[in-house]
Amino acid sequence: MEYFIELFLSGLTRGSIYALIALGYTMVYGIIGLINFAHGEIYMIGAFTAFIISTVLSIYGFPLLGIIVLAGLAAAVWASAYGYTIEKLAYRPLRHAPRLSPLISAIGMSIFLQNYVLLAQTSDFLPFPELIPEFDFMEPVAHIIGSSDLVIILTTAAAMVILTLVIKFTRIGKAMRATSQDRMMAMLTGINVDRVISTTFIIGSTLAAVGGLLIASHIGQINFFIGFIAGIKAFTAAVLGGIGSIPGAVLGGFVLGLTESFATGYVSSDYEDVFAFSLLVLILIFKPSGILGRAEIQKV
């Protein structure tokens, strides 16, 4: 039973990270109908920014809490700057082009950013400072759940709540919902759609950067390639939940995280990715629109 709980909690941790990244895929898809293949790289750049800031700050002996906050802010701002710029340079000029063009542009951006970080940094794994210490109050349950797992799960939950409130109640949130349902009509009600699209990229990038910081500190190392695998997994989660659906991305993230955790725990850890992608194939066969997705309405 204890083993079951342990696997469940580690599944939640994985699922949280997948969900944080999947939200970026699903929100961008919901607004402009594009799979932003460079999103995994945004996550990676967030992790690298956090790496650089936290390494420097720990050399100067900053307290851990200060390091986390500053590294998190820097990662969010820097990743958002990348997300914003990528949309402006690589996707906006292609907005009226055939659907395949921005998709290819996205793949190009992803490859470009990976190689750019590879050249600017190194291909080796770099040690990421442990930002989340083992809390004393966690001692009694430490054999089941680590402190950083707890922080990851709680941070993700908080991010989801904030995002939900923003989308439901704020002006920009309403503009985002309207734009995703009918872009032309959104323009005709006076919404500046360019600004809505930019904001969507900024929100998605911020969530990915937070995920990048948390998981890098949890695992303890990063390199230029971490965005690729995480990106594919999170994309799988988004499709699983129903791409375009925000609750779907969260649900898909947790379903994927738990599946991987239980499958590796009870079956074999050699086939981790096989389980994840088998799940995707099954969903695509039996419910192509995803768990919470609607059947696609072809827009004319």
Partner: peptide
């Protein structure tokens, strides 16, 4: 064609 936001 009215363009009502269907899910609002």
């Amino acid at each position: 064609g009215r363009h009502i936001f269907p899910q609002l």
